[in-house]
Nucleic acid binder design. Structure first.
Length: 608
DNA sequence: TAATCGAATAATGGGGCCGA
DNA sequence: TCGGCCCCATTATTCGATTA
């Protein structure tokens, strides 16, 4: 049966995964429609989230105009006998043209709401945004408000975790042992030569002993299984002998937390309900593992994943999460690492890890519940700042965790506010009253080829700074701080550029730069205060961007495309030319070429 | 052949409701 | 007030399938 469907030309968009009636049916609907015909169908939510429906989404985006994606949860037993957490979609589309944006509503409980959809409920999601958020799967995130879209775009300033980078660490996940396929290896009692088998339920945030193990594995047998039949065991260090990042693969969006992860001790094996990081190519060192764990444990990342995941924390979801991949060369790195390490390293098995991040030993781990709560609030706030979120946005994120205690959320928010006023201490470790100060090791040499952020040289006179460098500083400041009066703004930008005093010359230059920023649509003037107009490049009108692109290009000289894109990004104040900017700029170039406002020769372009 | 994803099904324990 | 029962949240297990 499945062979028939897989080979049928009329079912050419079924993609990977199981043959599934609703998938077949959806494609059939598209095929049967005449041009201009419309279709409405009730199907499982997998249509917008699963990897196996990627091709179908592509088909719907390209061959139809989607007129509605209304998703409801079966909480109120709209379909009897179906699990309450199962989600369905009422999908409507017209076979005409293609979809640029579509109205969507998620996690509704009452079908009556359909009456007001999409006029009064729901929001518009652009296909372009879907492509940027989920380049690998085209899965649609479950946005419930414009704030969600905004936050997603802000977070997208950082590279997706699955993107392999030369200049920083990378994450690759694996399932070590399969609970079914490898069950012959599992013993039900500990013994000499046996190591515990960790499962998902055994961990919680910063806690790798949340429950006791059920199974043990003979180390020799396990090594043999890991190395496979061909692999030689000459005593080499395998991943289980390192500290690893591990996360639960069984989860749910209505659970207290959706992303549950921790650093796993050495000398344990992991079942497939606990996916772990791969280290055999030095992808991640110990400090970076701790850093990754801190970021992944945060409400920010969890919130992002909750909008994608159903019940399985699949790897492709994790790989499509934007994560700031800081290294020890960044001043914000160690404050996060040391705090997270104090939460993780509370037992002797983490002594080595504690030392690797600069603590004296596991004795410096935080065991007092109040202190642990404080450290967690600090970490969550730090990560929220790292992502460049506003207080409103962070508040919104916290509000999407109804099962988390109010006081925990309040502490995180309060800490967020405090950190907004007081920059983070470089050496964080105040271990409470009477506690000893920890020593932080000098950051190790990082294997970065390019420094993550070019530090402005404070010695450079302001007149000699590149104008675009000032634009980037302006965007940076407003991204971090929100609306500012003109005078405050000048001071803040000056500080960002490394000037401690704002003399008359600096004031003059920066005042002019702020006006330029308004002209370029970076800032807006609202009631006397300046504020960031648009956080990321896709918030702009396309026509406006085309003008800006041409302006950034300057005269009629030939410019390499790459260089032109970079110049455009700086012109708009974006210090990093991320994927979003890159894609937008390429599309602008194509548009301008079509309109004859730009000409191309090989890889170079110039104004006409 | 290992890695990975997807779907169906199930066990368990707590909380709350309800009738005796 | 108490016991039974159902719902919900949580945490899986198992099987089927494709793809690199």
């Amino acid at each position: 049966m499945s062979a028939y469907f897989r080979s049928s030309p009329q079912y050419g968009h079924q993609g990977r995964g199981d043959v599934n009636l609703y998938k077949l049916f959806t494609e059939l609907c598209v095929n049967l429609l005449r041009e201009g015909g419309v279709c409405g169908t009730v199907i499982p939510s997998g249509i917008y989230s699963d990897l196996g429906t990627k091709d179908l989404r592509e088909l719907l985006f390209q061959k139809t105009q989607i007129t509605g994606l209304f998703c409801f949860e079966n909480r109120k037993a709209i379909f009897e006998g179906v699990d309450s957490r199962f989600k369905f979609v009422i999908l409507t589309f017209e076979k005409a043209g293609h979809t640029q944006a579509f109205p969507a509503a998620f996690m509704r409980h009452d079908v009556e709401e359909l009456e007001y959809f999409p006029q009064q409920t729901g929001l518009s999601i652009s296909v372009d945004l879907v492509r940027r958020l989920s380049p690998d799967s085209l899965s649609v995130m479950e946005f419930k408000s414009e704030t969600d879209v905004q936050i997603a775009q802000t977070m997208l300033e950082f590279p997706l975790l699955g993107e392999k980078r030369e200049d920083t660490w990378n994450l690759s996940l694996t399932n070590e042992f399969h609970m079914t396929n490898d069950s012959h290896l599992f013993k039900t009692s500990p013994g000499p030569g046996r190591l515990p088998l960790y499962e998902g339920k055994m961990i919680w945030h910063f806690d790798s002993r949340y429950a006791e193990p059920r199974y043990w594995v003979d180390e020799k047998e396990a090594r043999k299984a890991i190395l496979g039949r061909g692999g030689q065991d000459y005593g080499q260090t395998l991943d289980y002998q390192r500290y690893r990042f591990g996360c639960r693969s069984i989860t749910g969006t209505t659970n207290e937390r959706t992303m549950v992860c921790s650093v796993i001790p050495k000398q344990v094996f992991c079942g497939n309900s606990l996916q772990v990081s791969v280290h055999d190519n030095n992808e991640l060192d110990e400090q970076e593992t701790v850093f990754l764990n801190a970021v992944m444990s945060s409400y920010c990342v969890d919130y992002s994943l909750r909008q994608r995941v159903a019940t399985q924390m699949n790897m492709f979801f994790i790989y499509q999460t934007p994560v700031p991949r800081l290294t020890a060369s960044d001043p914000r790195f160690m404050p996060i690492v040391t705090r997270a390490a104090r939460l993780i390293c509370t037992t002797p098995e983490f002594d080595e890890l504690a030392r690797a991040v600069g603590l004296k030993g596991y004795q410096e781990g935080a065991t007092d519940p109040a202190e642990r709560a404080r450290l967690r609030a600090e970490l969550d706030a730090m990560v929220a700042h790292l992502y460049g979120l506003t207080e409103e946005e962070f508040r919104h994120i916290l509000s999407t965790f109804p099962l988390v205690k109010e006081e925990v959320k309040a502490a995180a928010l309060e800490e967020f506010r405090r950190q907004a006023n007081t920059p983070l201490p470089a050496l964080p470790l105040s271990t409470g009253s009477g506690g000893k100060k920890a020593v932080v090791r000098t950051p190790r040499e990082v294997k970065t080829t390019t420094p993550p952020k070019p530090e402005p040289n404070p010695a450079t006179p302001i007149d000699r700074l590149e104008p675009d460098e000032i634009m980037c500083a302006i965007r940076q400041v407003f991204q971090a701080q929100g609306p500012l009066e003109r005078d405050e703004a000048i001071k803040a930008v000056a500080r960002e550029l490394g000037y401690n005093r704002t003399g008359p010359r600096i004031q003059e230059v920066l005042d002019a730069a702020l006006r330029t920023a308004v002209r370029r649509g970076i800032l807006g003037n609202q009631g006397g205060a300046l504020r960031l107009l648009v956080r990321s490049v896709e918030g702009y009108q396309r026509e406006f961007l085309k003008e800006q692109f041409l302006s950034a290009l300057g005269g009629r000289q030939w410019t390499e495309r790459e260089e032109a894109i970079r110049a455009f990004a700086r012109w708009m104040g974006f210090a990093r030319t991320g994927r979003a900017i890159e894609e937008t700029a390429r599309s602008l170039i194509n548009g301008l070429l079509r309109e004859g406002r730009l000409q191309a020769e090989g890889s170079r372009v110039r104004r006409v």
